[in-house]
Design a protein around this nucleic acid. Structure first.
Length: 621
DNA sequence: CTTAGGG
DNA sequence: CCCTAAG
């Protein structure tokens, strides 16, 4: 039985950011920046650069421990050659076929030469159905502000999206063994989306280590949608990087769409219900921890300030919330005479940007491109449709009272520097779920799905079912309820189940500072059994270096295997020793040649002996 | 960040 | 593979 190789894709295109996988190993960020010239050309560059974030199994790579500037230099070299390649191939970017072929193949070659192994995994989501609602979204007026914007957002979200990607991705799929999504989208980085009564535009964002300094659009647009670019300053980039660093692990909203019926779910409605029910059925004890981890929920007072042009203390306060989508109102242009008492004046709010939570798609290599597209589609719609509500952020503070007027809250005054923000937040709170209570952090829908290549069906990932399911019962309560998770006040996650001696009343009013000590959940790495040749390499290295120098072993024998950390190697050695000791009948997986196992035992025995001697010496002296 | 071990 | 105490 051949184990299924799977791909992990991250997405950043249309406001679907990718966050770094949690890992202790170094991660390279991908670059993208704005240029104001030929958008299609840029699209290509971006794709190339984005591809740089995906490492292909079995190929060499820049060692994690290599100096950062070395890495960058390396990357730049790749990029340079890449660009040269483009020039020489004279690929016509306006011709989609040519564009795809040239760029991908060209890039592939170059990166191989340069020991970079990447796969193009950039997707851009293209709204191609009616964009009704954008007008509503753009113009929010009077006391209906909340309602209006929610309408607009809902319309936007409910709109149909197609998933654009390379046409020849199929070929790539067959080549790529595994793709890791790397950091593409730092938390809170600028995701400006101009939505001024226009269709959404495509863009991606970069980070400090970007090869490109600015923003640009992503991918050729099938439609004649306007493409705009939004720039961000270097300082913003830097800050974004800092944030990412602090996060140090990925936060994903994993999506578990149910595609078995082949029908498109209705966002915000029936889909949600049927969803959770099915998920809850599939929860397995195996994933209990993940389940717990994913129980965390986004408090209603979190959000992003995405637009660097609005940098402020308030921005910093919320900037590492990358679960919530946020909408930034660029300017609230009130009437020329903003009298406090003039209630019938309208306020025009222009939403500058918002952010969609991260999502992760896991899909077998044998899946078709079509199914991949479908997967992404489902992932996106599921995340978006799983229930969001709109939060209002005024000068960094959450406006909870829905009954206040804009004037009362100050939203209508002085449109220019009001720092008004909208947040798209998960609808469901976890507050009624004791098991989730102590969990730090947020996240209401963290789900995942896998796609079966044969049936093209998407299976739901068990872990998250229960919490979401449970939470949904309470989703009406959420928007103005204080988040009582009180997690940050608890010593640690040990208090997860049994809440310490804090009265319920106290809990209810404990202010939440989610970002402090909040933990992300992390996608468990894909299991990748060691091949015989890997075992061979490992044994050889250990024979040479001995046990206890796993970093050196890594460098020596697995330097080009990005997915094998020294901890992995140490663990593998441990299991090898175990395997060597048990009877062959008890062994599982690909059989390891007895010869290797003998060597394992020999080395192990020798090292143990040495260690014992050391101990004796110590105690003797 | 690495090691070493338990889970 | 994950998690983490220790160094």
């Amino acid at each position: 039985m051949v184990s299924q190789t799977r791909l992990e894709y991250g997405f950043i295109g249309y406001q679907v950011p990718v966050f770094p996988r949690a890992s202790r190993s170094a991660r390279v960020r991908v670059p993208i920046r704005k240029k104001s010239g030929n958008n299609e050309k840029h699209a290509f560059e971006i794709l190339v650069s984005v591809a740089g974030d995906f490492l292909q199994e079995g190929e060499t790579f820049v060692p994690p421990n290599c100096k950062k500037d070395q890495q960058n230099a390396c990357k730049n070299r790749v990029l340079k050659e890449q660009e040269d390649e483009i020039q020489s191939s004279k690929c016509n970017l306006s011709d989609k076929e040519t564009y795809n072929e040239k760029t991908l193949s060209g890039y592939h070659q170059i990166r191989t030469v340069n020991k970079f192994s990447h796969a193009p995994d950039q997707f851009n989501l293209k709204p191609y159905s009616s964009l009704k609602g954008f007008d509503k979204l753009a113009n929010v007026s009077g006391r209906n502000a909340n309602h209006s914007s929610e309408l607009g957002i809902s319309s936007l979200i409910s709109g149909e999206f197609s998933v654009g990607q390379f046409e020849d991705a199929r070929a790539e799929l067959s080549i790529i063994q595994t793709v890791k999504s790397e950091t593409l989208q730092p938390t809170g980085s600028l995701d400006a989306l101009e939505m001024d009564c226009k269709p959404p535009h495509y863009f991606c964002s970069g980070s400090k280590t970007s090869l490109f300094k600015d923003w640009t659009t992503l991918g050729p647009s099938r439609r004649s949608d306007t493409i705009e670019t939004v720039s961000r300053d270097d300082n913003g980039n830097y800050m974004a990087d800092q944030r990412i660093k602090n996060l140090s692990s990925s936060r994903r909203w994993r999506v578990s769409p149910n595609l078995n019926d082949g029908k498109r779910r209705k966002i915000f409605h029936d889909g949600r219900t049927s969803y959770s029910r099915q998920r809850s059925k599939r929860i397995s004890p195996l994933k209990r921890r993940d389940f717990f981890n994913q129980c965390r929920f986004s408090g209603s007072d979190r959000g992003f300030q995405l637009d660097d042009r609005f940098n402020s203390a308030a921005d910093k306060r919320v900037d590492d919330d990358n679960y919530c989508a946020a909408i930034r109102v660029a300017s609230s242009v009130a009437s020329p005479h903003p009298h406090p008492g003039s209630r019938d004046r309208n306020v025009k709010l222009r939403i500058k940007s918002f952010k969609v939570p991260e999502l992760l798609v896991e899909i077998p290599t044998t899946a078709t491109v079509g199914s991949l597209k479908r997967s992404v589609m489902e992932a996106v719609t599921t995340v978006l449709g799983d229930g969001l509500h709109v939060g209002i952020l005024l000068q960094g503070k959450k406006v909870r009272d829905d009954s206040k007027t804009l004037i009362q809250t100050g939203i209508s005054r002085d449109g220019k520097h009001r720092n008004l923000g909208f947040m798209l937040e998960p609808r469901h709170a976890q507050i009624k779920l004791p098991r989730c209570l102590g969990e730090q952090g947020i996240t209401s829908h963290a789900t995942s799905f896998t796609l079966d290549p044969r049936t093209s069906s998407i299976s739901l990932d068990p872990p998250v079912a229960g919490c979401i399911n449970g939470a949904q019962r309470d989703h009406h309560l959420v928007p103005s309820l204080p988040n009582i998770s009180a997690s940050t006040t608890l010593p640690n996650s040990q208090s997860r189940v049994s809440v310490p001696a804090i009265s319920g009343e106290a809990l209810a009013v404990v202010p939440i500072h989610h970002r402090a000590g909040r933990r992300e959940f992390v996608q468990r790495r894909i299991r990748r059994p060691f091949s015989v040749s890997e075992v061979e390499a490992l044994v050889q290295a250990v024979e040479k270096l001995g046990t206890g120098r796993w970093r050196d072993v890594k460098l020596r024998a697995f330097d080009n295997a990005k997915h094998r950390t020294y901890v992995d190697l140490k663990d593998k050695w441990k299991t090898l020793v175990h395997t060597a000791r048990i009877s062959p009948q008890q062994r599982r997986g690909e059989p390891v040649p007895q010869e290797l196992l003998d060597r394992v035992l020999a080395v192990h025995a020798y090292r143990s002996q040495q260690q014992a001697k050391q101990q004796q010496l110590k105690s003797g002296v």
